[in-house]
Write a protein that binds this DNA or RNA. Structure first.
Length: 803
RNA sequence: GCUGCUGUGGCGGAAUUGGCAGACGCAAGGGACUUAAAAUCCCUCGGUGGCGACACCGUACCGGUUCGAUCCCGGUCAGCAGCACCA
């Protein structure tokens, strides 16, 4: 046969797949279904990164295998195309974002096709398509109508670089997640989504899902649910100061209180505070600090004591001082705490600095040296009626006592905040709301959707934090849907995360006109069976889309409350030097170059072979050659094929074992060891100098999901019927996986001293007898007492001797 | 600081209900073919000692349990990721 011409072969089959829609999901809803999904890309100007194919190829392998196993597979692709980089590029180059998006999508699509990915292009979606964002807007209106979208004047995270508001999830260490600029606080009126209403379910429902642990852990930490109690402390100012605590058991040890500098009582009590100047100065200082500084300076506690007002510990009647300090956050709990320095590290540090008494109420540590925070072993002391109880018992007892006296109630709190949903930029979905002086905020009638973005030539963001849409008065000025009078449109747009929050649902029937989701298609296809995506989206897209799905479930739009059954995450592909790929580091690998030089099949194989799918792995150009060499040898294998249909006697166990291994490894996302197993099998064929027709057919099928072009071509050239993509996945027989004879190790006291080839079904006594007969073993055990003899079937014999 | 994860040859990585450590691949060295190179094929390839058959050591480090530990337990160190004063 001629040389392996991957260029011609790959083009031939890609064209055929396109022409025949080979991988389109079938409309027959009686077939068993499988919905595989990868996070759809943001079509950036840089084109595809070598990281994209790692995720896409892995699920492509899953999808191709499932098709061969007889499933009706949905493996769709789309474009998450709204967003700042496109808009910034458009601004810089004076091209409309819509044009930029179309160009980028065309390039991405070409690149994805050149990889031979089996996406169903008939179900392509684009979040910037008005037919798509019509329904994104529709979902927003439903959220509004159910009280889950509301407008609020608040301090928001403002990115000084992008000139836009960010969600909490988009702020990393006080900097913008995208551009790295400083994030400052700014008071603005913003649309908010009440994700906190779903906090409990977003935590609890994780238990029933097949998500990798680190995703579950990260989501749980982010939502940050804690159980405790709210407790009322009487003050000399008259108002009760309410605090939230997870350790009500330590109430007897509360020796002072702390309020956040933003706490409203400070204003209220101004007349009674005798050191108001110092308090005001501290408030001003705290307000000046950005989030970043507040966390950076967290080592040293600061604060001011409120002179003139004191509180009373409700459990023992003792008067205790009140401080203000920025280590207490206004945004969490009640904005005030009871301080128990003996059993809380932060309180301990503060008490040491400000000379507050440290009263031990849980025995077990040395509270003069450090706070004792262990809940599991401590015993209550100095706590009146709680003395002698464990921490757990004391928690119950004190909460009951507080409830009885009307001093406190059990309470659950979350770290999760509501989702800031407004962005002051052009390239996003317009928020379909209208403001009327008379009627207030009014939703746009659903019949007027989609509310299209106006054609603008000037979409530079406003300096004052206004959206560019605000300058477009013809679009802004409208009539009130309620009273018909003059009104103004909302000029902020939705965040980039809006469109992707329901995209998995739309793929099930992207053309459906009566709602966001066809009920019939959703019932059949949903939820997604396997979803793969980046860890960086765990507390963003993944959390948001779970929230939206739950909402859509509650209002009867979808019949399932979780959008994804299984979630995995791929590791990053690093540069050859082990650092993150970036232009500035000069270590970027372009997938187009690799495909041109080695072919798509080699590229796919290499990215799957590179290492543990979940871990980061450095790119290594010379390792690619190993994968190319493998495919070259597969190509040449066809020349050694014999006409025999079944498996040769010698290789039969290896064939069954490899089928089992590859099948299981694909399901377990261990593509690297699946490929290793196929390489080993190829080595067996090489040693045998031949391959039977039956072996060839099975081998090509196993390899097909990984290297679809070369296997399709060889399938045809070897004269097998039809296309391999439609061939059934090979089966294995467990009973035929084992060899008839096995080599076992013989150990004396755990050290290998001999090897022995025995019948696989040998009895333990016979194996041990044979082992003892080995000269090397006999010499070592001669004259010693045998303490124990162990036979592990098919593995080894171990003889333990003494003396 | 807290939480989670990881630590295996020159490199990427295999192998754990405790059972022959280093599969598979890369790189390297030697050989065959060739005028030569590339490609291909064959051999070697954890360390130390020995001409040698072999012996001893070896899965970050120290200790424990076991006939047997990369795997389990206790402690130490290093790295990565997430969270970051959430009471």
């Amino acid at each position: 046969m001629e040389k392996y011409d991957f260029k011609a072969i790959e083009k031939k089959w890609q064209d055929l797949w396109d022409a025949e829609h080979t991988f389109a999901a079938k409309q027959d809803f009686t077939l068993p279904k499988y919905y595989a999904l990868v996070e759809f890309p943001y079509p950036s100007g840089q084109g595809l990164h070598v990281g994209h194919p790692r995720s896409y190829t892995a699920l492509d392998i899953v999808a191709r295998k499932k098709r061969m196993q007889g499933y009706n597979v949905l493996y769709p692709m789309g474009w998450d195309a709204f967003g700042l980089p496109t808009e910034n590029y458009a601004l810089k180059n004076h091209i409309h974002p819509e044009v930029v998006t179309a160009n980028n999508v065309a390039r991405f699509k070409g690149q994805l096709k050149s990889l031979g990915l089996s996406f169903d292009w008939d179900r392509e979606i684009n979040t910037t398509d008005p037919d798509y964002y019509k329904w994104t807007q529709w979902i927003f209106l439903q959220l509004y109508k159910h009280g889950l979208a509301y407008k609020k004047e608040m301090n928001v995270n403002w990115c000084t670089g992008c000139k836009v508001v960010l969600a909490n999830e988009e702020v990393v260490e006080g900097k913008c997640e995208r551009c790295g600029s400083d994030v400052v606080h700014k008071a603005k009126s913003q649309w908010m989504l009440k994700i906190t209403a779903y906090a409990d379910r977003l935590v609890d429902d994780l238990d029933g899902l097949d998500f990798i642990d680190r995703v579950k852990v990260q989501q749980k930490n982010w939502i940050g649910r804690s159980h405790g109690a709210e407790v009322k402390f009487a003050t000399t100012a008259g108002d009760d100061l309410v605090v939230y605590t997870t350790r009500p058991d330590t109430l007897f040890g509360a020796t002072y209180m702390v309020m956040s500098p933003e706490h409203p009582f400070i204003e209220k009590w101004a007349g009674q505070i005798t050191n108001l100047d110092a308090v005001r100065a501290y408030q001003a200082e705290a307000a000046r600090k950005s989030d970043f500084e507040r966390t950076e300076l967290s080592k040293e506690k600061t604060g001011v004591r409120l002179e003139g007002v004191r509180a009373m510990n409700p459990v023992n009647g003792k008067e205790i001082p009140i401080f203000i300090s920025d280590y207490v956050l206004i945004s969490y709990g009640t904005g005030a705490i009871m301080a128990v320095p003996a059993h809380d590290e932060r309180d301990w540090e503060f008490a040491k600095k400000f000379g507050c008494p440290i009263v031990e109420v849980v025995k077990g540590g040395d509270v003069e040296q450090a706070a004792f925070t262990d809940c599991a072993t401590g015993v209550m002391v100095n706590s009146g009626f709680l003395d002698g109880m464990s921490v757990e018992q004391a928690k119950k007892a004190i909460v009951d006592w507080l409830a009885e006296k009307g001093l406190g109630t059990p309470k659950t709190n979350f770290k999760l905040r509501d989702w800031v949903f407004s962005r002051q930029r052009y390239w996003g979905e317009p928020i379909p709301m209208v403001h009327c002086e008379k009627c207030g905020w009014q939703p746009l009638p659903e019949s007027e959707l989609p509310l299209r973005l106006p054609e603008l030539s000037d979409f530079e963001p406003g300096e004052n934090g206004e959206s560019p849409l605000a300058r477009h008065t013809e679009w802004v000025n409208t009539t009130c849907p309620c009273c018909g009078g003059p009104a103004k449109r909302e000029t902020d747009t939705m965040p980039q995360w809006a469109g992707s929050s329901w995209s998995s649902l739309r793929h099930t029937d992207p053309g459906y006109g009566k709602g966001p989701v066809s009920p019939e298609a959703a019932r059949y296809w949903g939820p997604v069976d396997w979803y793969n995506g980046g860890m960086e989206h765990t507390t963003l897209h993944l959390l948001y889309s779970r929230f939206w799905n739950k909402f859509l479930y509650d209002i009867g739009v979808v019949p399932f409350s979780e959008p994804y059954k299984k979630r995995t995450s791929h590791g990053m592909i690093l540069g050859e030097n082990g650092e993150k790929m970036s232009k500035s580091r000069g270590n970027v690998v372009n997938p187009d170059d690799i495909i041109r030089e080695y072919g798509a099949d080699t590229m796919r194989l290499y990215e799957m072979f590179i290492g543990d799918f979940e871990k980061a792995a450095p790119w290594n150009t010379s390792s690619i050659k190993g994968c190319k060499r493998f495919l070259d040898r597969v190509w040449n294998l066809a020349d050694t094929m014999t006409p025999q249909d079944g498996y040769s006697e010698k290789l039969e166990p290896a064939m069954h074992r490899t089928i089992k291994k590859v099948t299981g490894d694909i399901d377990g996302l261990k593509m690297n060891t699946a490929i290793a197993a196929m390489m080993s099998l190829l080595n067996e064929f090489s040693d045998a100098k031949q391959v039977t027709r039956g072996e060839m057919a099975t081998f090509l099928k196993l390899l097909n999901p990984f290297a679809p072009h070369i296997t399709e071509e060889l399938w045809q050239r070897c004269g097998f019927a039809g296309q391999i993509a439609h061939a059934p996945w090979p089966a294995y027989d467990e009973a035929k996986c084992a060899d008839k004879t096995v080599e076992i190790a013989v150990q004396v006291n755990g050290k290998v001293r001999a090897k022995l080839t025995v019948d696989a079904a040998i009895a333990a006594a016979d194996a041990i007898a044979a082992a003892k007969a080995e000269p090397a073993v006999a010499a070592l055990i001669a004259g010693k007492t045998v303490a124990k003899e162990i036979y592990v079937p098919g593995k080894l014999v171990n003889i333990a001797v003494k003396g």
